[in-house]
Structures are given as C-alpha cells and as structure tokens.
Amino acid sequence: MSTAAAAVSQHAADAPTLATEGAAMPQLDFATYPNQIFWLAVALVIIYLMLSRIALPRIGAVLAERKGTITNDIAAAEELKMKAQEAEKAYNQALADARSEASRIVGEARAEIQADLDAAMAEADAEIAAKQAEAEGRIAEIRASAVESVTEVAKDTAKELVAALGGKADARSVTAAVNQRLKG
C-alpha cells in the first residue's frame, strides 16, 4: 500500500489532469444545495413517519411482549417447582405414615400371636398337670397293692415256717404277729 501511495504522489506530480478536471468539489457547488436540502427533508420526513407510525411501536410492542412472556414463563416455572416440592413433601409424609402404620400392624399381630401362644401354653400345662395327677394316682395304687401282696407273702411264709418247725400255727395269731412286725 505504501508503494501505491508513493505512486499516487509521483503521478500526481506529472498528471496535470488531476488539477484541472478532478479538483472541483461537487460538495461545494452551492447551486445544488436547495435541491439536496429539499430532497433530504423529504427523505427524513418519510423515514420519520415510517418509523414513528409503524416500525418503532411495532418493534417496541414485540420486545415488551417477549419480555412479558419470559417473565411469565419464569414465574410459571417457579410455581411448578414449588408444586413439585410440595408433592415431594406430601409423598414423604405418606411414606412416613405408611411406615408407622406398618409397624403398628406388626406390633398388633405380634401381640395377638403372643396371646394365642400363651393360651395354648396354659392349656398344654393344664393337660400335662392332669396327666401327671392321673399317673401319680396309678403309681399310688400300684404301691398300695404291692404292700398288700408283701403282707400276704409274709403271712404265708410265716405259716409255712411255723408248720415246718413243727408247731401248729394258729392262723389268727400269725397274722397278728406279722402285722405287728410290718408295722414296727
């Protein structure tokens, strides 16, 4: 670019046409000023009317509407978030309720089973006690009969002994003697 600029100055020196033909600035031709100012005024008025009547209110309204929409959406999102939080809270509450209900039912069931168990145990105990009592009765009977048999055997043995020794045994006195001995 610097070379080009140097060439410009060099050619400007040996190009007299630049001074004669191109030097006049159309910008300073005051004869065209009324024309330019008139048409500029027309252009500005047209643009101003276009903008102030149609374009700017429309764009402003769109921007405001968008801002409103965004604000509303954010508010709605906030509300939904709150609702979600509430729902979560309710869910947790329900869960806790269900848990306590379940533990209550478990406790009740356990108590019921315990009661049933206690009743069955008491019944079983009673049955066992009855059977024991019966068995004891029978044992006592057996024992009594055993004692009787022993007495009988002792009397007979004593009679036999007396007979074998040559005496004549009086049955009644032998019995009395055996009884005496058994008691003593």
Partner: peptide, 22 residues
C-alpha cells in the same frame, strides 16, 4: 492516466437536462 477522484460525487439530473432546480 486521468484520475478524477471527485467526479463520483457529481450530481446529475436523473431524467436528463443540465440544470438542477430545487
């Protein structure tokens, strides 16, 4: 080489003619 850097700014009537009225 004729350089007319300012010629591009010249105003011309759009529909012919020489004079530029307001």
């Amino acid at each position: 080489l004729a350089i007319h850097p300012m010629a591009q700014f010249a105003m011309k009537p759009l529909f012919g003619g020489d004079t530029i009225h307001w």
